[in-house]
Amino acid sequence: MIRNVRPWRIPLAVVLTIGAVGAGWAHGLRVVAAPQADGIAGRAFYSDETPATGETVLLFDAGGARLATTQTVDDGRFVFALSRHGEYLVVAEGEEGHRAETRVRVGPLPPSAASPVAALDDARLAALIRGELQPLREDIARYEKRIRLQNIVAGLGFIVGLAGAWVWWRARRGGG
């Protein structure tokens, strides 16, 4: 029975099966985070852009002290409540040695104006803008961390060039 199968068809079949199962992007952990009105919100996801659920996310301050720990929910999202401005480090820790981190600067809200009513309005406006900008910030961060086709092609070209350089080097040494 197996003799009727041409040998080259077997690896082809295997590759096609794997392709059918789902050829996508691999399994590196990524994290994006941005300041919000009352803290930091963000998302953890794998490099194939599936959400990383149930992963541990840690919040550190600029001095490296751990402030809080949380878990990502179903869509990979997490939230830290904060009351102070400053630089923060968000670290997502996956299993099997996966880890990703990002820095977030939570800027001060606008300085309070003359009247308390105006200050309140400014604060609300700032919170509103941050809320509106949140998806846009996430999209930009995700786009930056995406694996692009040109990177794959660049890597393959690099490997071809390196092999060629090694052959050239060996040939030169062998000839001289």
Binding site: G22, G24, W25, H27, G155, L162, A163, V167
Partner: peptide, 29 residues
């Protein structure tokens, strides 16, 4: 020396193989 091209080809395969991903339960390998 005569195996260098083969090594390069396998290097390219190894490089790309990590992008072929299989979903396993909640995670992926």
């Amino acid at each position: 020396d005569e195996r260098i091209p083969q090594a390069g080809m396998l290097c390219a395969m190894f490089f790309v193989a990590s992008l072929i991903h299989l979903p396993v339960g909640v995670s992926a390998v």
